[in-house]
């Protein structure tokens, strides 16, 4: 029998029978977008080490992906990934985690490693809420929203532009998409994997159970519909005023540039220090 087989099931750990996400959660769409990018590049799961933190999005690679996976403590996956990349510079290191993990508790590791421009791909799945613990306010929860820890509405300003933060910190590649853009997301992930530098992709992902219900934005389909309606490409967005951009989601690839990458710089430093290459003689010493 010539039965149709899902092309990405071969990337799933054999002991895993299904995704761990709630029905309609966008995280599964992100998972598939990653696998499609890897497959599209003709790469193998053994070319990668995946690192995740704590929260729903951390379960995208762990245990789902049939690869080396380090499921770390809350907020720290990028710091663990730093050590892995330094130890295995020839492997692709990919961090997949949520907005609470990477931007709240782990914010400084995100900033500092974007600054270092160490080669790794960081996929920040932004659902605007703490889903796993039952719908608490995140730094990405829009102001005024009632959550389980803000029953009278959040009273804090929120991160509207995580990508902007990472751009300012110095990453080589930064893109934002939503789960309504899985094809574009896959294309950006392909570029991110190949980037010599810190590559950051923010994906807005629907959480129908904790976010949709609380915000009144509805179920998975309604949330996807909302992402589609509010999204605007970076090119189009440039033509609009900040007023006109209120409540819009600017999507696209914001930054794609070449600059010194840390692993390469470290390798160069080691070559100099170990005497493998001669130190450049200071001209002033003549």
């Amino acid at each position: 029998m010539n039965e149709l087989v899902h092309p990405y099931h071969c990337f799933i750990r054999p002991t895993v029978t299904h995704t761990t996400f709630c029905p309609g959660c966008g995280d599964g769409t992100v998972a598939q977008s990653i696998l499609r990018a890897i497959d599209g590049l003709g790469m193998d799961m053994d070319d990668f080490v995946f690192v995740s933190g704590i929260g729903c999005a951390a379960w995208i690679p762990s245990p789902f992906f049939n690869a080396d996976v380090l499921h770390t403590t809350h907020g720290r996956p990028i710091a663990f990934a730093f050590g892995i990349k330094m130890g295995l510079p020839d492997k692709k290191v990919m961090v997949v985690s949520g907005d609470g993990d990477l931007v709240a508790i782990g914010g400084n590791h995100l900033i500092q490693n974007a600054r270092r421009n160490i080669e790794m791909t960081v996929i920040c799945v932004n659902n605007g809420i703490y889903g796993m613990t039952g719908g608490q306010a995140a730094p990405t929860t829009p102001m005024g929203v009632k959550t389980t820890t803000t029953p009278y509405g959040t009273f804090e300003n929120f991160f509207e532009d995580i990508s902007g933060l990472v751009i300012a910190a110095g990453a080589s590649f930064v893109a934002r998409w939503t789960t309504a853009h899985p094809r574009q997301l896959t294309n950006s992930i392909k570029k991110a994997i190949q980037k010599k530098g810190f590559a950051f992709i923010e994906v807005l992902s629907q959480c129908p159970v904790q976010f949709g219900r609380k915000m009144g934005t509805g179920n998975a389909v309604q949330m996807l519909e909302d992402y589609k309606k509010r999204s605007i490409s970076i090119k189009e967005a440039k033509k609009l005023s900040p007023e006109e951009l209120r409540d819009r989601i600017v999507v696209g690839e914001f930054v794609d540039l070449d600059k010194p990458e840390m692993v390469e710089e470290v390798t160069r430093m080691i070559r100099r220090a170990s005497g493998e290459v001669q130190e450049v003689v200071d001209a002033g010493r003549g």
Partner: peptide, 13 residues
């Protein structure tokens, strides 16, 4: 349907 499905439950030839 295949690309959006969060559970990798649909495949299209």
């Amino acid at each position: 349907c295949m690309i959006f499905c969060p559970d990798l439950a649909v495949v299209v030839s």
